[in-house]
């Protein structure tokens, strides 16, 4: 049995913070950089010198747009850079649309961090396979930073990233840098493209058969749409990876983020508290069912 993911940090652990777990802390936007036509990456600093709580790759915050509402958004920045928060947000509903429209100087609210992140300690000494689909790269990026910072703690590092089209690729410049590295293989594929795209075309699972890792000592971290994660897990198993070595980050509707509002239940799991990162072995039966 695989161990639990990285431990959560209680949101109100700092002294002087809000006592009511629903209360957000104001943060000022210092940068809004466009990733794709509907996705931005926001950098935020706390208003009035509040300490930014440290977080673990894979954890998330409740991100609040004044007068609009809250959405659960993963941290997408480097966990070692202190004093700021980085979130990548895609405009889907009214809250996320409002968040993507925040400009430098605007103030939003943050509460968190919540949930269990990627179990990096379990990955020590092993080959690491990271598979991201679409916006799923955002919660994996802090993990990549962490791995690169301690690169010699790991064996081979293989990253496969799939997006719908070339214009949907996140962190484009950074990916180009990563692709130049010799201690990392970063494959990019898109579902469809026009003739200006020279890269791979095909779903993300099509890149897994020739991904370079030793199934007997590898660990896989997967994030993307649920259907993509399901097929990725199957493809990784087909490569000989045991289901205990596959970790997924699940997404569900969330209102509270601390297992009290009931929205994010997935079988017995509260995705907010027990996840969002869960071992495939614990959820594979639920993932095979419809409308859980």
């Amino acid at each position: 049995m695989a161990s639990e993911g990285a431990s959560p940090v209680p949101a109100s652990s700092g002294t002087g913070g809000p006592k009511d777990p629903y209360v957000p802390v104001p943060y000022r936007v210092v940068e809004n950089s466009s990733e794709t036509p509907d996705t931005v990456t926001l950098t935020l600093h706390p208003v009035g010198g509040t300490r930014v709580p440290s977080f673990l790759p894979g954890q998330f915050n409740m991100f609040y747009a004044f007068g609009i509402g809250e959405a659960a958004i993963s941290m997408s920045g480097d966990p070692h850079v202190v004093g700021r928060l980085v979130h990548t947000v895609r405009a889907v509903g009214k809250v996320t649309t409002a968040l993507t429209r925040l400009r430098p100087g605007d103030v939003a609210g943050i509460r968190g961090p919540y949930g269990h992140g990627w179990p990096l300690e379990v990955a020590r000494g092993r080959d690491v396979v990271i598979v991201a689909g679409g916006l799923g790269l955002a919660p994996l990026r802090p993990l990549v930073y962490q791995i690169l910072r301690n690169r010699d703690h790991f064996g081979r590092v293989e990253i496969v990233y799939g997006a719908r089209t070339p214009s949907d690729l996140l962190y484009y410049g950074e990916i180009q840098e990563w692709r130049k590295r010799s201690d990392l293989r970063f494959q990019v594929t898109v579902d469809s493209a026009d003739r200006s795209w020279y890269g791979d075309v095909g779903v993300v699972t099509s890149r897994l058969p020739d991904a370079r890792f030793d199934p007997s000592r590898a660990i896989a971290f997967v994030c993307g749409p649920e259907i993509m994660m399901k097929f990725t897990a199957q493809a990784l198993e087909a490569r000989g990876l045991s289901d205990e070595a596959i970790w997924l980050s699940m997404e569900r509707n969330m209102k509270c983020a601390f297992a009290q509002c009931g929205h994010c239940q997935f079988g017995p799991h509260f995705i907010c508290r027990d996840g969002p990162v869960l071992p495939y072995t614990r959820i594979r039966r639920l993932m095979a069912l419809r409308e859980v």
Partner: peptide, 12 residues
């Protein structure tokens, strides 16, 4: 929450 010069202020 109320708008302030510094953003907003939350009253529990």
């Amino acid at each position: 929450a109320r708008r302030t010069a510094e953003g907003f202020e939350v009253e529990e």
